[in-house]
């Protein structure tokens, strides 16, 4: 058992923590770090979570990254049509990696620049409008920068958030529930006044000023702001089981190693 862990492992533990105590809902996570994080949550503190095999079935054993399962044990069925039904029912928590995130928790996966002739066109809105208005959402940003955390609104509002100007009287936004943002520098939440974004914990060696410097809008500091927790030895074992090929090591531009005290 090594006493070493990396920044990727810290981020995975932070992603897992976003799902803590969510109970019997579908946990969907996109990208290696969030995926391992959701699996870690299910295999440790939140076993009630429900997950898919990434295609059309429910499984109780989270998928291994890059691993081949010849005959996965399936516990149920979850085709795309039923995913939409689940989304609209509210029984889901999704963690996505958007192109842009703004101070209101609005997200963009569609395009950078003017919508009609964008500088960069990406995938489209995908399920972001429906996800964000119907169930819990968290975000992941592998490179914390002002291009990701923009000064004003995101260029195309795909996922909704807490911007009051976007809502007309009579619209029901009770289910809008932004939870965590996990980056290569820190963990943030929406627990400030009027859902303002706070820095909740800093990854080892990172300062609040460094995070603020890389963010396009003012951040609040959580009262109990501390260091993002390292993985426990038990968590480390689960992480290695879910990502045996160590794909997480290439998730960040730099992936420093730390030693357990």
């Amino acid at each position: 058992m090594t006493d070493e862990y990396t920044l990727a492992d810290v981020a995975i533990v932070a992603c897992a923590d976003a799902f803590r105590g969510n109970g019997e809902i579908i946990a969907s996570a996109f990208g290696a770090i969030p995926r391992v994080g959701a699996g870690l949550a299910k295999l440790t503190h939140t076993p009630e979570l429900m997950m898919t095999d990434g295609e059309a079935f429910l499984v109780e054993e989270p998928r291994v990254i890059g691993g081949k399962v010849e005959t996965p044990e399936l516990s149920g069925y979850m085709n795309y049509s039923r995913v939409f039904d689940i989304v609209w029912s509210g029984r889901r928590h999704v963690m996505i990696g958007p192109l842009q995130i703004d101070r209101w928790g609005q997200t963009n996966l569609s395009a950078i620049g003017d919508y009609n002739s964008p500088k960069i066109a990406m995938l489209g809105m995908r399920g972001l409008p429906g996800n964000s208005i119907n169930h819990i959402n968290s975000m992941y940003a592998g490179h914390h920068s002002k291009r990701m955390f923009v000064e004003g609104e995101v260029d195309v509002v795909c996922g909704v958030g807490y911007n009051p100007d976007r809502w007309a009287p009579g619209m029901n936004r009770d289910a809008v529930d932004m939870r965590r943002i996990v980056t290569n520098l820190c963990v943030m939440d929406f627990e400030g006044p009027d859902h303002a974004i706070r820095v909740r914990s800093l990854h080892p060696g990172v300062t609040f000023d460094q995070v603020q410097e890389a963010t396009g809008f003012p951040l609040l500091r959580a009262d109990d702001l501390g260091e993002s927790p390292p993985p426990t030895p038990e968590e480390m074992t689960v992480i290695e089981r879910l990502d045996p090929k160590n794909t997480r090591a290439s998730a960040f531009k730099e992936n420093p190693t730390f030693r357990r005290n």
Binding site: M125, P129, V157, A175
Partner: peptide
């Protein structure tokens, strides 16, 4: 009818 789309740029594009 649906809530999905409200508050987003679905309504503007």
């Amino acid at each position: 009818p649906t809530r999905t789309g409200l508050g987003s740029d679905v309504m503007t594009v």
